[in-house]
Each structure stands twice: as structure tokens, then as C-alpha cells.
Amino acid sequence: MTTYLLVHGAWHTGECWTRVTPLLEAAGHRVLAPTLTGDGDKAHLAGPEVGLDTHVADVAGLIREEDLADVVLVGHSYAGLVISSVANERPDRIARLVYLDAMVPEDGESAADVLSVTQALIDLALTSESGWGVPPVPEPPPAGLFGVTDDIAWLRTMLSDQPVRCLQQPVRLDNPATRSIPRTHIHCAVKPEGFSRRAVPAVQPNGTPAEVWELPTGHDCMITMPAELSELLLKLA
């Protein structure tokens, strides 16, 4: 049995994995999909003090409380920063990192460093009425809301403002043991205009060839292609 820990991205909740979780469980594996502080049923905890370190504590705390080991740690989008930092804290508990259409940071980088368009969201939040909340996209572009076209109403029920500190705080990747953890990158091929991702280096930090897979869908592939995503994740069990 493999333990999958699925970490949602900005604005979302753990509910976004609803279509993936039963497929992994049906194959005999354990799946945890927490909602991070400030999102969903924890939206009342949102505020200017909530940042990347808060979300790292959420996930690292769950690993500790549940005594998880050999975890396949999956981070979607912004959560690429989260899982990188969690691995830096608990490399002994992580079997593999999966960057799901995610930000892949270097030590000392913030979300804005990894994806430059994020700076515009930060600036918007700092000049907003709250001074700290980054609202989700108000209207879906032609490619859909986070790539979702058929289930936008359901998706909107789980979206809430993202505390800007999450996008400002840098990751800390100073634990050499983190480099030994194998990585898998899953890219969503359908991207909105203005978004580009860094190329994945041909060699992983642990010295093995990079493992990059692709799904022919938009950003929220756990909603639009759950069976295909689950099939890829099951290859890692």
C-alpha cells in the first residue's frame, strides 16, 4: 500500500481531488487530501499572517500526526512550493515528490520568482480593500476556469481568496537530504496565454534522468482528467 498525500494549489480546497481519491483507494492505497489553512472550511482562518510557512506546517503536521512514511507527496500549482519545503523538513518521510503542473522552486525563491505573472497578483492584493487577499479569477477565459469548462459552478464553490503572503514567502531548501528524493513532473499541455513554465532539467537533483509526463488538458487536471491522472499516479505506487 502506498500513501498518497495530495496538496491543492492556491484558491482551491482538498475537495478538488474528489474524483481522484476513490480511484487511488480502489487500487488499495491510502489517500489524504487536506484543505490548507485559509481555504474552504478553514477560510475563517485566512488573514495577512497566513503564508507559505503556514501551509508547510499544515502538511508537515499531518505527516507527523498520522505518522506517515514513504509518502508520495503531490503538489498542484502553488503547492509545488509547499511540497518542496515539506520535503526539506521531513525528507525521511517522503518517497517521491510529484509536481503536478506546479511551481518548482530553487532555494530562496518565492512564487513570483518561479512564475513572474504572480507579481501582478501580489500587486493587486496589496492595493485591494483587504490589503492581503488575492481573489480567484473573476471570469473564465476561453480555455475555462483553471482549464475547467464543464464544471465551473462546482469549482467556484471551493474557491476563496489566497493570502498574499503565500506568494511572497521564499522556500528554504537547505537540507542536502532533500536532493536524494526522486521527482516526477506532470504537465498539463493546455496553457492560457501569458503562462510559461520553466524547463525541467534533464537530470534530477538525485542524479537520475528527469521524469516528465504530460496530460492533454488544462491546469485543473484532477477535475478534467481524473482517471488519466490517477493512472499516472498509480505508476508510482
Rank of each mutant, 00 (worst) to 15 (best):
A60M: 00
W132K: 06
G28C: 11
G108T: 07
P182N: 06
G144W: 08
T21A: 05
A189V: 12
S230Y: 07
R30V: 13
T127Q: 14
A79G: 04
N88A: 09
Q204W: 06
D161V: 13
T54W: 00
L215F: 02
S130V: 01
G14Y: 03
T149Y: 00
M222Y: 11
D174S: 09
S180G: 13
V134H: 12
I181Y: 06
L6N: 06
L32V: 11
T118N: 08
A43S: 15
T157W: 03
G108P: 05
G75I: 11
G28F: 12
A87L: 10
P91V: 04
I186Q: 05
I63D: 04
G28T: 12
A177K: 15
L126E: 15
E65Y: 13
G9P: 04
K191Q: 12
L68S: 06
L236Y: 09
L45R: 14
A60W: 00
A46H: 09
A237M: 03
H219E: 04
W17Y: 06
L167I: 01
L234E: 06
D92E: 15
S116M: 03
V114G: 00
G194H: 00
D150A: 14
P163Q: 15
L23H: 07
L167G: 01
W154G: 13
A202H: 01
P105R: 09
A120S: 12
V20Y: 02
V71L: 05
R156Y: 04
T217V: 14
R197H: 11
V72I: 15
L23M: 11
W11N: 14
L23S: 07
A43Q: 14
T118W: 04
D150L: 08
Y78H: 13
Q204P: 05
P140D: 09
V20S: 03
S85Y: 14
G9A: 06
V20Q: 01
A69F: 10
P142H: 08
G14Q: 02
T157R: 14
V50W: 00
A27K: 13
R64L: 15
G218C: 05
E214Y: 13
H55V: 02
L234T: 07
G80T: 05
W154P: 05
A87G: 14
D150G: 08
A10C: 11
A112N: 11
P170R: 10
A237H: 09
A43P: 03
V190N: 03
W11V: 13
E109K: 11
T184W: 12
M158W: 02
S128H: 12
P142N: 09
L68D: 03
L232E: 10
A27S: 13
S160M: 05
S85F: 12
